[in-house]
Structure formats: C-alpha cells, structure tokens
Simulated assay, not measured.
Amino acid sequence: MNHRHFKLFKPYGYLSQFQTNAKHEINKKFLGELHDFPEGTMAIGRLDKDSEGLLLLTTDGKVSFDITSSKTDKEYYVQVDGEITPDAISQLQNGVTISHKSETYFTKPCKAFILETHPDFPERTKKIRDERHGKSTWISITINEGKFRQVRKMTAVVGFPTLRLVRIRVGSITLDGLEMGSAKEIANPLS
C-alpha cells in the first residue's frame, strides 16, 4: 500500500481529529474542514483545541507510532504571561514536576530559551490580551515527550502561564511554507 503523509498548520480552535461521537463535541471544528484528506488519515500526536501549529498526518500507523515515541523532538514557540526569568528558564531546562492523570510527573530535561524577536505568526482568531494587561515573553521549548497539555503545565509551574502555544517543528519537519489552515503533502517523515 502506498501511504500518504501531510503537514498541516492547525489553527486555534480545531480539534486534532476528524470526527467525534461525543455529544459535547458536536459543534466543534475538526481537521476535515481544513483539507480533503484521504480516507484512513490520522493525526500523528495531537495539539489541543487551544494550541496551533505543525500537525503531521499520515495513513501509516507505524509512522505515527515512531514519531510519537520519545525519539522525536517537538519544538514549540510559547508566549508566556510576564517577563520570564533566567531561573524559570533553567527550571524548564532541568525538568519540573507537573500533574498527569492524577499523579505527579517529573518532565525530562529539555531545551528552553528566550526568543530574541517575536515570531511572525498570523493573528489568532481569538484575541490574546495585549500589552495594556502586562508584558509577555516568547520562548522556545523543545521536548521529546508529550504528556497532556505538558508545555502549558510546565510554564505554569515556573510561574509564567502560557498565553499562546505554536508547535513549529517535529523532528526535521517545520511549519515553513504553510499558511494557517493549509496542508501540504510531504515525503515519509521517517525517511
């Protein structure tokens, strides 16, 4: 079988799935509204409804399994509330304790640093508060794990809650060349 692979710039407000049977999600937005994907396409990992950015999709379950493993780095640009401190960045780099499935979990060490310039992302459909409400900082966080809402929990634990989260890279695949809401067919991400 010839499998197909895609990269998508997931906008804010969309669920990383194609349909649901849950009554509480009946009026939600799904990936199939953005692009006509072939039957059997699945999201590789997820971005929650409030997160944006690079989402890989495939018709090959093995590719999905390999990319969601801890072998693959995922990089996020994160706008946090306030002017983040060097100490908070150091805590993120060394790992922090977050809650996961009613238990505590210590995150693996990761790459984290303050971005020198603000990324040039399109305006989000739901406005983020502006400078009148206080300063914010853009940082980069690269992890190779992916617990539920992990990056948001990590920044909150160090005292700088996430305002906007955009995944920009999975392995060597980046958002480059995509406009928000668009998808592009790519070669096998593992080759």
Rank of each mutant, 00 (worst) to 15 (best):
K108F: 10
R46C: 07
G146R: 00
G159Y: 07
S182A: 13
I84T: 08
K101W: 04
F18L: 07
G53R: 00
T20K: 08
D73E: 10
C110A: 14
L31K: 04
N188M: 07
T125H: 13
L31W: 05
E39I: 14
S90E: 15
E179H: 13
G32Q: 13
T85H: 08
K71L: 11
E33A: 14
A43E: 02
I84V: 14
K153R: 12
T104Q: 11
Y105C: 13
K101T: 07
D60E: 05
R169F: 08
V78L: 06
C110G: 07
T59C: 10
I143R: 04
Y105I: 00
Y14G: 02
R152S: 11
R164T: 06
A88Q: 04
K135I: 09
G32M: 08
G177E: 10
K127E: 15
S182K: 15
D81M: 14
Y14A: 04
L190F: 07
P189K: 04
A187F: 05
I128V: 12
Q19N: 14
S99A: 10
S140T: 11
V158N: 09
G45T: 02
T59E: 05
S172L: 13
D48W: 03
Q79M: 14
T174A: 06
D176S: 14
G134E: 07
R46Y: 01
L56A: 04
G181Q: 09
I168M: 00
H118C: 11
R46K: 10
V80M: 03
